[in-house]
Simulated scan of single mutants.
Amino acid sequence: MARFLVILSDKQRGRLSDALLLAHVRHLRTQAALGHLILCGPFTDDDGALQVLEATDAAAAQRLVEADPFVREGYYRRYGLHAFIEANEANDWLIGAAQTAANRLAPDVDAEAVPEAPRAD
């Protein structure tokens, strides 16, 4: 499974009916229960929203986005879909990943020499 960042944009403010909102929430609940929706939410500037989806490929992720009533009914008229690689402590923040290696200037950084982040007390 791959992860995808969805950026919803071109919001049609003032056009949100109760029926559309409830249909959207049903869609989110279903996708979360199926393990496809990792997180979602609107931007604080009320201009768009994001979703993080898990799907087998970009085509499957696109189908999930287009099944969302907010997209299907044009409440958000545009979206961007971007596959991404999650960086986290378990994969050492991708320091040894092929993509990281391909973008490095030179292999002169020893992964063991990367300083630890300060810990909060």
Rank of each mutant, 00 (worst) to 15 (best):
R15S: 11
L16G: 03
S17I: 01
S17L: 00
S17H: 05
L20C: 05
L21M: 12
L21F: 13
L21N: 15
A23T: 03
H24L: 00
V25M: 09
V25N: 07
V25L: 11
R26V: 06
R26S: 09
H27K: 05
H27R: 03
H27W: 05
L28I: 12
Q31L: 10
Q31P: 07
Q31D: 05
Q31R: 04
A32K: 11
A32Q: 09
A32N: 09
A33V: 14
A33S: 13
A33N: 07
L34P: 06
L34V: 08
L34Q: 12
L37T: 04
I38S: 00
L39S: 15
L39M: 13
G41W: 07
G41R: 10
P42A: 08
F43Q: 10
T44R: 12
D45L: 08
D45F: 02
D47H: 13
Q51M: 13
V52K: 01
V52Y: 02
L53K: 02
E54M: 05
D57P: 01
D57A: 04
D57H: 01
A58W: 00
A60Q: 09
A60I: 03
A61S: 02
A61I: 04
Q62L: 03
Q62R: 15
R63P: 08
R63F: 06
L64H: 00
V65N: 00
V65P: 01
V65Q: 00
E66S: 01
E66Q: 05
P69S: 11
P69E: 01
F70C: 11
F70V: 01
R72M: 03
R72D: 09
R72S: 08
E73Q: 13
E73I: 03
E73Y: 09
E73C: 10
E73A: 15
G74P: 14
G74C: 10
Y76V: 07
Y76L: 05
R77D: 00
R77N: 01
R78K: 13
R78Q: 13
R78H: 11
Y79R: 03
Y79N: 02
G80K: 12
H82T: 08
H82A: 06
H82E: 02
A83C: 01
E86N: 04
E86R: 06
E86F: 01
E89V: 13
A90D: 10
A90Q: 08
N91E: 04
D92H: 10
D92S: 14
W93F: 13
L94C: 06
L94P: 04
I95G: 07
G96I: 07
A97Y: 06
A97M: 10
A97F: 15
A98C: 04
A98S: 08
A98E: 05
Q99K: 06
Q99T: 15
T100Y: 10
L105T: 09
L105R: 11
A106Y: 02
A106E: 02
P107E: 03
P107H: 04
D108M: 11
D108K: 14
D108H: 14
D108Q: 14
V109Q: 11
V109W: 10
D110N: 11
A111Q: 06
A111G: 15
A111C: 11
E112K: 08
E112M: 08
E112S: 10
A113C: 11
A113L: 09
V114E: 04
V114T: 08
V114I: 15
P115H: 07
P115T: 06
E116R: 15
E116N: 12
E116P: 14
A117H: 11
P118G: 04
P118D: 07
R119H: 14
A120H: 13
A120Y: 14
A120P: 13
A120R: 15
